[in-house]
Amino acid sequence: MAQLDLLLPEGKIGNYTIQDTVELAKAAEAAEFRTVWKGESYSTNSFMNLSSIATATETINLGTAITNVFTRPPALIAMSAATLDMLSDGRTVLGLGVSTETVIKSWYGQSYERPLRRTREMIEVLQAMFAEETVEYDGEIFDVGPYPVGFDMDRETMPIYNAAMGPTNCRLTGEYADGWLPVYTPPETIRTLYEEEILHGVEAADRDPADVSVTPLVTTSVAETTAAARTQARRSLAQAMAVGYNGHVAQFGFGDAPDEAAAHWRKGNRDAATAAICDPMVDELTVAGTPEECRSRLQELQEQTGADTISVMPPYTATPADIESMLTALEPITST
């Protein structure tokens, strides 16, 4: 048995309606997935989308993956998350991250300064806002309060996950966050970062390792043939490289492939970008194959990484029907 989550698709506006994501979340709940996550690097607002899902589901958790730490002040993130938590009867998981410099500068029009310090302070301020009646915080980035909070949540706090990639950010995660959302990272590296960095932060803060959950976000392509699935996964990786993950992925020994894919994609040559993705990238960064192959690989991946949950990311080209088929294909390992 594997514990799975679903990262709902971004999709260009028009390709996925709000109702599409609501129906996919309902299907994930029926397939016994633990959490549906929603990003917002473009397309729909994650909190508003998840609010629609909250009223149509009963048990599945609702997570942001991710809300970046640059484009909303702590108070707005806290109010949005608390509102979603009240709508969902306490099912919200707040996933934070620095996103990428490309996204923050090009899409949001913000400067990408001191991302790790901003992340640490954001987590600290939010934890105070969720737990205290009055918040007062004097940091290097944020100066808040004293101010009455006024949230009416049914629980004292809310889990906060961090989408850390580098060693320092992973240590920060172990010290301050409730969970870790690694992405585009090989399984062995996830295990190493957890053992050497996450646990270092846990120890520094005198915390219990069980207090930090691990949920890798993994591109997952299920198709009738292995070749078709790998082609979908390859194209998704090419697009991810273009939005700024090439710098992160380049450190894992894939040669020039990440940078070449990013360069071709940004010039509009999608086919060349897809072809630039090497086989080891598909092997290490995705799960791609027939239903049986993907079920086996996801179970293996959870054991390899030591993850509490694997969050499957559908290929960018997947339609709502494709994702529903994927959920059906993977249900045998979530419900056994």
Rank of each mutant, 00 (worst) to 15 (best):
P186Q: 06
T290S: 02
S311G: 08
R155V: 01
A204G: 15
D322P: 09
L76D: 04
R171Q: 10
S99T: 10
Y137V: 00
P291T: 01
V98K: 06
E32V: 00
Y137E: 04
E136I: 05
A227W: 00
Q239C: 12
D206F: 10
A54Q: 07
G95K: 10
V312M: 07
R155T: 09
E293D: 09
V312P: 00
T334M: 00
N15W: 10
M326T: 09
T225F: 07
K267V: 09
A229P: 02
D154G: 15
F47G: 02
Y245I: 09
F47K: 11
R235H: 00
R270D: 11
M1Q: 13
L193T: 06
L50P: 00
L217P: 11
R34E: 12
L4Q: 03
W107D: 11
D5I: 06
T71W: 03
A307S: 05
A276Y: 05
Q302H: 11
E300F: 07
T185F: 06
T319F: 12
V36T: 03
T35S: 13
R117G: 15
P167K: 04
A238T: 07
K12A: 02
N269G: 00
E175S: 12
V214P: 06
M129D: 04
K105Q: 14
P74L: 06
P115N: 10
W180R: 07
G268T: 01
T71V: 05
G90W: 02
D259K: 02
I190N: 06
A65P: 05
P159E: 08
S296Y: 08
A263Y: 03
A227T: 09
L172D: 04
S43Q: 02
A30K: 15
V202P: 03
Y176S: 14
E132D: 13
D143C: 11
Q19F: 14
D5P: 07
P148V: 09
L116E: 14
T274C: 13
Q239A: 13
A288N: 06
Q19C: 11
P320E: 13
M281S: 09
G244T: 07
R266Y: 10
L8A: 02
A210Y: 03
D322L: 00
P182K: 05
P74D: 10
S236P: 05
D154R: 14
A250F: 03
T67E: 08
G145Q: 05
D208M: 07
V103Y: 07
D308R: 04
D85I: 00
E10H: 12
C294H: 02
T83C: 01
A204R: 15
Q299D: 04
A82G: 09
Y42E: 02
E121F: 08
R207F: 12
A25F: 05
D5K: 08
S221C: 05
D154M: 15
E10S: 11
V282G: 07
N246P: 08
M122P: 04
T286W: 05
L237A: 02
D152F: 11
Y147N: 03
G179D: 03
L237E: 05
G95Y: 08
E113W: 07
P73S: 13
G174S: 10
S221Y: 06
S335Y: 14
Q251E: 08
K12I: 04
R235S: 08
T192N: 08
E324R: 15
N49V: 10
S236N: 09
P332Q: 01
